[in-house]
């Protein structure tokens, strides 16, 4: 049997094996024990800790995350809030939550008129495909929000053997 025959004949079986290798997390070592996702109650409590019982309105906030994330360990995230950022009318805080991480909090930023523009960027970890929520608090005390469903193709954080 020539090497070429071998290469051709094997292709279909090889593709299955490759798919298996990759689907098993192939290139990474077996996962250590993974922590559970936050419960919906924990998520609600986290949001309540920020907004109290004030109503949160959808709008004025724009959450930017690539719709299909290449690796959940490092996910670029930008939050921009429409605001003149003056002494009289500005964004006081921006909070980001991830509902299926072990803990829902991601970042809480404090801003003011000196911030000039209400736009921040960070890189975050997402344990899984999930909804990310951004909430902004304005200087008049009102709360505004945006949410995005993010699809994570590889699991984050937990594949290292320690």
């Amino acid at each position: 049997m020539s090497a070429t025959d071998d290469g051709k004949k094997m292709t279909r079986r090889e593709v299955l094996k490759i798919t298996g290798a990759l689907a098993l997390g192939g290139t990474a070592a077996p996962a250590a024990v993974s922590p559970a996702a936050a419960t919906p109650a924990e998520m609600q409590a986290a949001v309540a800790s920020v907004v109290g019982d004030v109503k949160v309105t959808q709008g004025r906030v724009k959450l930017d995350i690539p719709p299909l994330v290449e690796n959940g360990n490092t996910v670029p995230c930008t939050v921009t809030v429409e605001s003149p950022m003056t002494a009289a009318d500005h964004v006081r805080a921006i909070h980001v939550f991830a509902e299926r991480n072990p803990q829902p909090y991601v970042i809480s930023a404090t801003l003011g008129p000196r911030t000039g523009r209400a736009s921040i960027s960070v890189r975050m970890r997402l344990r899984d495909s999930q909804t990310v929520l951004a909430i902004a608090q304005m200087s008049d005390g009102s709360f505004w929000s945006d949410r995005i469903n993010v699809i994570v193709t590889t699991g984050a954080c937990l594949e290292d053997v320690l």
Binding site: Q103, V106, S108, S119, V122
Partner: peptide, 16 residues
Amino acid sequence: ARLYPAIAANPFISFH
């Protein structure tokens, strides 16, 4: 800003 464990290693923060 207050950061939590969900911020990736080698934190990147951009603001204005």
